[in-house]
């Protein structure tokens, strides 16, 4: 955090107009990343933030406050999504950054890498229908006591696209209970009018889970792509509120 002045709570009304915080974002580029530029475009052009690219072979986070792991097929993902990326040089730094309490967010392949790296619980298995799935889905925020969701409306269904072959969230019963008890579920898949039910779970995820946070609440992972829903030209800006939340200051 560089220019923080007031807490988010004190200024809740003005948050949506001007951002209180400016952050330096680092977007990690693995060989095979393919949503890196999309995330960079949203952060730098739509949100006017400083963004640097972090190359997978490097060990330097360049003083970034917030690390983004973008979507794609890191190292080809021929083995298991994210299984190789976690061993890359830059990930050793990202893991330390997260363990120090630094913010990290993984979208799609980034989420897969975070679970492989042990920064988030659970695993992302092959979709129930065994096919790659790309379409608009709806997700409902499950908590707002989180940097990434603090400006979201928990009663609203947000239209955000998915595009993955391995996005079925799974974990053992104990871990699931812990995630639920600790308010770690960030999003659940739902219908266009916000009903959370198995038939609206696009990939067969446990408990309709589309995104989670860690116990420390500084690491976020989600399968849907908010960066694909942040540009008015594309006819859907539901995802923009997530990026606005990131910039709305730390929780009081």
């Amino acid at each position: 955090m560089k220019k923080g002045r007031k807490s988010a709570k004190q200024n809740h009304e003005t948050l949506k107009i001007s951002y209180l915080w400016a952050m330096k974002f680092g977007v990690v580029i693995f060989p095979g990343s393919n949503c890196d530029q999309d995330v960079i475009d949203v952060l730098s052009k739509t949100m006017n933030q400083e963004v640097v690219k972090l190359w997978h072979k490097d060990h330097d986070l360049q003083g970034c406050d917030f690390i983004m792991l973008p979507g794609g097929f890191s190292y080809g993902d021929y083995l298991r999504s994210g299984a190789i990326a976690r061993f890359s040089p830059i990930m050793q730094e990202v893991i330390q950054h997260a363990n120090r309490g630094g913010y990290v967010m993984g979208i799609c392949n980034g989420f897969q890498i975070l679970t492989e790296a042990g920064l988030l619980p659970g695993a992302l298995l092959r979709n129930q229908e065994q096919k790659f799935l790309c379409k608009n889905v709806y997700v409902k925020p499950q908590t707002t006591s989180l940097l990434a969701t603090q400006l979201l409306d928990t009663n609203k269904a947000y239209k955000i696209p998915v595009a993955h072959g391995e996005g079925r969230f799974y974990t053992d019963a104990d871990t699931l209970k812990k995630i639920q008890d600790n308010d770690q579920v960030m999003f659940r898949y739902c219908s266009h009018d916000g009903i959370i039910a198995p038939e609206f779970d696009c990939n067969g995820s446990l408990d309709n889970i589309a995104g989670i946070t860690n116990e420390g609440r500084n690491v976020f992972g989600m399968m849907p792509h908010p960066e694909r829903a942040a540009d008015a030209d594309l006819g859907n800006t539901d995802g923009k509120a997530i990026f606005e939340s990131l910039l709305a200051g730390v929780l009081a």
């Binding site: 530029q37 999309d38 096919k131 790659f132 799935l133 790309c134 595009a163 694909r228 594309l234 006819g235």
Partner: peptide, 21 residues
């Protein structure tokens, strides 16, 4: 054709204007 088209990533690049229109 959605049985086919949903198996393709049609939105990467954040430039496809015909997803929602």
């Amino acid at each position: 054709r959605r049985w086919v088209s949903e198996q393709y990533d049609s939105m990467v690049g954040t430039a496809t204007m015909t997803t929602n229109m």
